[in-house]
Computed example of a mutant assay.
Amino acid sequence: MTLVTTKEMLKDAHTNHYAIGAFGAHNLEIIKSVIAGAESVGSPVILQTTSSTYKYVEMPYMIAMAKAAAEQAKIPVALHLDHGESFDVVMECLRAGYTSIMIDGSKLSLEDNIALVRKVTDAAGPIGVPVEAELGTIGGVEDDFVVEESEAFFTDPEAAERFVRETGIDSFAPAFGTAHGNYKREPKLQFDLLDKIQKLTNIPLVMHGASGVPEESVRKSLDYGVAKVNFSTELKDLFAEEVRAFFQDNPNENDPRKYFIPAREALIELVKRKIMMLQK
């Protein structure tokens, strides 16, 4: 099948209290692993990239790989822009064929964030592409951007209600205690805050920085409107670990058709576990 949007899959997940896994698509091997893992449990899946990923891969290759993966897949596959940092980046992805967009104006004032996101929804809505946006600041490392823990702040529920209402977004990423990258200690998720945000916005919520969050906490978040959960760091860590381990045992091997196999197999199992964790 062709690439689909995230709109219907997130709407169904939100209604029925489960979540769709969204996985960082950094190269062909990871894309194939994500699809294989999702197929094995019969779940829709979201491939997502930041702008630095598609710039590294180069957009024509990124789109070709995602489309080929979707066409071969037995499950619905969406291609999502994660943390689009500007309107120009969003438009580049829309023109190229991304089927879901996140615009991240979380570092702006509330007024400027609303204006930027509204501009994106006005562009994406008429062509049927859903938009995700963020309010509050999620800490940690995302590509080359670092938000120190002291700089992160939680989403204000009343501001979230206004933000969602005035921007017309399809899904919302609140800051409620998760962080990008590796955690230095177990995150303390603010479920009371998440509950207030869900009741005031009533749209699918997105958990960023799920890598390393305990399963119990991830599953609990599904009761409070989380319908999309992002994973990236764990995939990259495991992929690198498996490649390193292969070369420790096979220092003279030079065939990527061999040294990527253990990494792919490990990622398939990881994706399966993550998706099953998101089912109720």
Rank of each mutant, 00 (worst) to 15 (best):
5 T>E: 07
6 T>D: 01
9 M>W: 05
12 D>Y: 11
13 A>D: 00
15 T>S: 15
18 Y>T: 07
19 A>W: 03
19 A>Q: 05
24 G>T: 14
24 G>P: 06
25 A>M: 13
31 I>H: 08
38 A>H: 13
39 E>K: 04
42 G>Q: 02
47 L>V: 01
49 T>V: 08
49 T>A: 14
50 T>V: 13
50 T>A: 10
51 S>G: 06
54 Y>P: 11
55 K>F: 06
55 K>C: 00
56 Y>Q: 05
56 Y>L: 09
62 M>E: 09
64 A>H: 08
65 M>W: 15
68 A>R: 07
69 A>F: 06
71 E>I: 08
72 Q>I: 05
73 A>D: 12
74 K>P: 05
75 I>N: 03
79 L>C: 12
81 L>F: 10
82 D>Q: 08
84 G>Y: 03
84 G>P: 06
92 E>H: 04
92 E>M: 08
94 L>H: 06
94 L>W: 04
97 G>L: 02
98 Y>H: 03
99 T>G: 12
101 I>Q: 02
101 I>Y: 07
101 I>L: 09
102 M>S: 00
102 M>D: 04
102 M>R: 09
103 I>F: 02
104 D>E: 02
105 G>M: 05
107 K>T: 15
108 L>T: 07
111 E>S: 11
112 D>I: 05
113 N>V: 00
114 I>H: 04
119 K>M: 10
119 K>E: 15
120 V>K: 10
123 A>N: 01
123 A>D: 10
125 G>Q: 07
130 P>D: 03
131 V>Y: 04
134 E>L: 09
138 I>A: 00
139 G>Y: 05
142 E>C: 02
151 E>C: 08
152 A>S: 14
152 A>E: 00
153 F>R: 14
159 A>H: 09
161 E>L: 08
162 R>S: 12
162 R>M: 13
164 V>Q: 12
165 R>I: 12
166 E>Y: 06
167 T>L: 09
168 G>V: 07
168 G>M: 02
169 I>P: 01
169 I>A: 03
180 H>N: 10
182 N>I: 15
184 K>F: 11
185 R>N: 15
187 P>N: 11
187 P>L: 01
188 K>H: 07
188 K>Y: 08
189 L>S: 09
192 D>I: 02
193 L>R: 04
196 K>I: 05
201 T>E: 09
204 P>N: 07
207 M>P: 10
208 H>I: 01
211 S>C: 07
212 G>P: 11
213 V>R: 02
213 V>C: 03
214 P>I: 01
217 S>M: 15
218 V>P: 07
221 S>V: 02
225 G>I: 09
227 A>H: 10
228 K>W: 11
229 V>Y: 00
230 N>V: 07
234 E>S: 12
236 K>T: 07
237 D>M: 14
240 A>N: 13
241 E>K: 15
243 V>R: 03
244 R>D: 11
248 Q>S: 12
250 N>D: 11
252 N>F: 14
254 N>T: 15
254 N>W: 13
256 P>C: 04
257 R>Q: 10
259 Y>D: 07
265 E>A: 11
265 E>D: 14
269 E>C: 05
270 L>S: 06
274 K>F: 01
277 M>K: 10
277 M>N: 01
280 K>H: 14
280 K>Q: 14
